[in-house]
Design a protein around this nucleic acid. Structure first.
Lengths: 126, 126
DNA sequence: ATTTCTTACGACACGCGTAAGAATG
DNA sequence: CATTCTTACGCGTGTCGTAAGAAAT
């Protein structure tokens, strides 16, 4: 099972036909058909009832929809996360404290923070 | 980005080295190395700092860990879901209750349950 | 007769393994 | 010198596209 297969599966579910799904995905219909076949074969289950030219979800297919959407969402989240983290290469951290903390535990904590941060390859100046 | 790539990435994260990850995944080291390279190239980001023979997560790599685990978990859930749905073609549900609930709210709840279940194509007798 | 799904086939890309090179401790 | 990561290359598999067949409205 693969997210590519799941994507095509969901496209068929949403559009209601292999043809429309292929159009939406910018691929040819046979590709979607073959992907679906292979997915069903891997899972040892029929995902759709083929009644002539209509694709109707089976019980297993219906069960797959929800986790399938979670899966593609998880992948989108992963990509978005690394993209946003990519922009966080530089930043500024300001720390203010009351005098009573300025000597005990603050310097030690800052030192540990710098060490931890440096071990990740982050340059820390100031 | 793909679950296979993410799996190998997480293996490297967990084991701390490409070598150990490859051993754990039952593949050769160069495969993992190449997968990692390709993943980094796709994401336009370095995921690890290569300091000699040590692999240390970059900021982007560190950010990817959490959503990566969510992703593989989502895929496992998807597979488990369809597998269990496949086996749940027939089953038996026993409900017991205290007398005080037996007339209010139980029958109504059971009725709604039967309706919901029937809309999924499940036959419900008894 | 048109629309839609499926099968067949050839081309291209991807992933993996083996082998060899580079670098670190 | 041994361990580890990387690059190079060959092979098998998978995916896609085009073309042709089958079924249904």
């Amino acid at each position: 099972m693969d997210v590519r297969q799941v994507r095509q599966f969901l496209a068929v579910v949403d559009t209601g036909s292999v043809h429309a799904a292929a159009t939406q995905l910018l691929v040819a219909q046979p590709s979607v058909s073959q992907t679906l076949r292979r997915l069903e074969h891997e899972l040892n289950t029929e995902l759709f009832h083929r009644t002539g030219r209509r694709m109707v979800l089976t019980v297993a297919g219906r069960a797959l929809v929800r986790p399938a959407r979670d899966l593609v969402r998880a992948l989108d989240v992963a990509r978005a996360t690394v993209e946003s983290a990519d922009g966080l290469q530089a930043g500024r951290l300001a720390i203010s404290s009351m005098p009573s903390q300025a000597v005990h535990p603050l310097p030690a904590l800052i030192g540990r923070f710098r060490d931890a941060v440096k071990s990740c390859g982050v340059v820390c100046d100031g």
